[in-house]
């Protein structure tokens, strides 16, 4: 019975540093372990939301989304809508159905989408982008 040719590789791995990225150990256990965040690229496709100071409410992103994940919702009371948005509607991305193809980002005529590389979106309830979009607007004065 011969020894496998992979024995040298196994011995080399035995004595060298572990190859694992220790994500998300720090939040789960109380051990103070130097953990590394995985090195994700800055322009990887992650969570995106609309910047309402530029959005004109044209609905092109809703028409061209392949998964029908965008809904146009009227801007609620208490926020002042900018003048370029006559119909006072804004897009809300449902992250549970979005496939992150970024068709909405590239087809917007005024480049109104802010892109990040956030990917930790697991949750037991449905999440969408309404709070993030509304945080770009100023609240209406008076009331």
């Amino acid at each position: 019975m011969g020894k496998p040719k992979i024995l040298k590789l196994i011995l080399k791995n035995f004595v060298s540093k572990p190859a694992t990225l220790h994500y998300p150990l720090k939040e789960y256990r109380v051990i103070k372990f130097p953990y590394e965040h995985t090195l994700i690229e800055e322009d990887a496709r992650g969570r995106h939301y609309a910047d309402l100071t530029k959005c004109t409410g044209c609905s092109l992103c809703k028409l061209d989304c392949p998964a029908d994940a965008i809904e146009m919702i009227p801007i609620p009371e208490g926020y002042e809508a900018p003048k370029i948005n006559p119909r006072k509607i804004y897009p809300v991305v449902n992250y549970f159905r979005c496939v992150f193809c970024y068709r909405c980002v590239t087809i917007c005529p005024v480049n109104a989408y802010i892109t990040t590389s956030e990917y930790r979106l697991a949750s037991p309830e449905s999440i969408d982008s309404s709070q993030l979009s509304l945080s770009t607007l100023k609240k209406a004065s008076g009331g």
Binding site: Y23, P24, E27, Y28, T38, Y95, F96, C98, V99, F100, C101, Y119, R120, L121, A122, S123, P124, I127
Partner: peptide, 22 residues
């Protein structure tokens, strides 16, 4: 019990979801 969005979900996101469930 837990939903993990993404197309496809990264392995780090899958581990993150399992850890949140635990």
């Amino acid at each position: 019990d837990m939903y993990i969005p993404g197309c496809p979900a990264r392995p780090e996101a899958i581990l993150d979801g399992i850890v949140k469930l635990l």
